[in-house]
Amino acid sequence: ILPPVEVKPGEHRLQYTYCIWFSRRAPGKQATTQNYDQNLQLIGRFASVEQFWGFYSYLARPTHLASHSDIHIFKDGIKPMWEDGANKNGGKWIVRLRKGLSSRCWENMILAMLGEQFLVGDEICGAVISVRFQEDIISVWNRTAQDTLTTGRIRDTLKRVLNLPPNTVMEYKTHNDSLKQCTS
């Protein structure tokens, strides 16, 4: 447990404190829970709009990241792993983007999350941008995969804020299914 992040006078406090994580996997190497955990690096924590921009301005844009890199922005106290208590009954919306679109979409995604535009209470756990060889993937994780009202609302907000081309495919996957797929 880390100490609370201090918000100085004049700064604009966010609804939640967030952590920025980075991970990179050697291409071709099988992902396991253990090496995934070992590859996760905590980059920083922020609790205000100003602190967010302080980090974000120095963070590489998805376009400039090497393949198999992931940036995770999760609420403080939630590790970006399926096994975390906040995630284990949850799932994620997956949006696959062609190269060149992701930097703008990722920024819009984060701003919507930090600004509480999803209107789903505590349901959002965090968001990930995954840079892959031929595409980039944005995913939004929520706590309760079974809550179709919430997952529907997240999908609708995502569509609106990402301003996606009409043919963009969106897919929902429960972490339980991801876990089963990984261990089978």
Binding site: L14, V49, E50, W53, G54, L111, L114, G115, E116, Q117
Partner: peptide, 21 residues
């Protein structure tokens, strides 16, 4: 309780704030 909601344009304006070091 009350939620702290920010619009995208407001957040973007804050990008150049001197406090965003």
């Amino acid at each position: 309780g009350t939620r702290i909601i920010y619009e995208r344009n407001f957040l973007l304006q804050m990008r150049n704030s001197p406090l965003a070091r």
